[in-house]
Simulated scan of single mutants.
Amino acid sequence: MKSTIILAVGLAAGSAGVRETLATAQTDSPLAHVTNSFHFAVPASLSRASALFGPEGERCWAGDHWNPVFLYPQPAKDVEGAVFTVQHGPHQSVWVNTLFDQAAGRMQYVSFLPDTLVFTVDVRLSALTSSTTKVEVTYVRTALNAAANEDVLALRKRDGENGPEWQRAIEHCLAAERKSEH
């Protein structure tokens, strides 16, 4: 198995606010490795917005496909060290919450689909005002075999659309909460 240094080339995508990096690790078969970032703002305080980025907190806005099944802790709770699975059609991904600091607005997850890909999701929140929070999300994905390269590259393309989708979904969640309070 030969290996070489990973070469990364940064590209900026216009108005979508998406930064992409594509790197390919050279082994006997090249494996796709991509890094994508996007950002948006939500009409919520930092403390409220932070609560929306744990696996349980995301249920409000992430859609019907987001149904984490907690292995730890029991009962389910958004905490650092949580381990859960998520079903993706016929595939099941395993997730580990490696960083969960709501006060600082930092969350990070490592996830993998066995024999397919491994990825991290890094979420950084910062207060723009007392009622508006900036959300920055970075995905890093690596194919675990050459057959998964196309999937990793397709996910990179889809990530560019996540910012506006996440923003709309979170705004809808927050609006529904406000409506139910009245």
Rank of each mutant, 00 (worst) to 15 (best):
G89T: 07
G54T: 03
P68G: 03
W66A: 02
N67I: 04
D101S: 10
P55C: 08
P114M: 08
D64Q: 13
H91Q: 11
A51V: 06
V118D: 07
H65V: 13
S50R: 04
Q87I: 08
V79E: 13
L113R: 00
P73K: 06
V86S: 01
F70D: 02
T85Q: 07
P75A: 02
Y72A: 14
P68K: 00
V69N: 08
G105I: 03
G63C: 08
L71F: 11
P68L: 05
V83T: 08
Q87A: 15
R106Y: 03
P73Y: 09
D115G: 10
N97R: 09
A62G: 03
G63K: 01
R48F: 06
W95D: 06
A62L: 09
Q74I: 13
P75F: 07
V96N: 11
D115R: 11
V83L: 15
W95P: 04
H65A: 15
D64P: 11
N97E: 13
R48V: 14
T120K: 05
R48H: 12
L52I: 12
Q87S: 13
E56S: 15
D78E: 06
V79L: 12
D64I: 10
V110L: 14
Q74Y: 06
Q108L: 05
L113Q: 07
L113K: 00
Q92M: 11
V123I: 14
F53R: 03
F70S: 00
V79F: 10
A103N: 08
A51E: 14
L117A: 12
P73C: 02
M107K: 07
L113M: 09
V69R: 11
G81S: 05
A104W: 01
V86N: 06
F70Y: 14
Y72C: 00
L125H: 02
A49S: 06
Q74C: 01
C60N: 13
P114L: 08
Y72E: 11
A82V: 03
E56L: 15
E80N: 08
V96L: 15
N97P: 04
Y72D: 09
F84L: 15
E58N: 01
S93R: 09
S93D: 12
W95G: 01
A51G: 15
P114G: 07
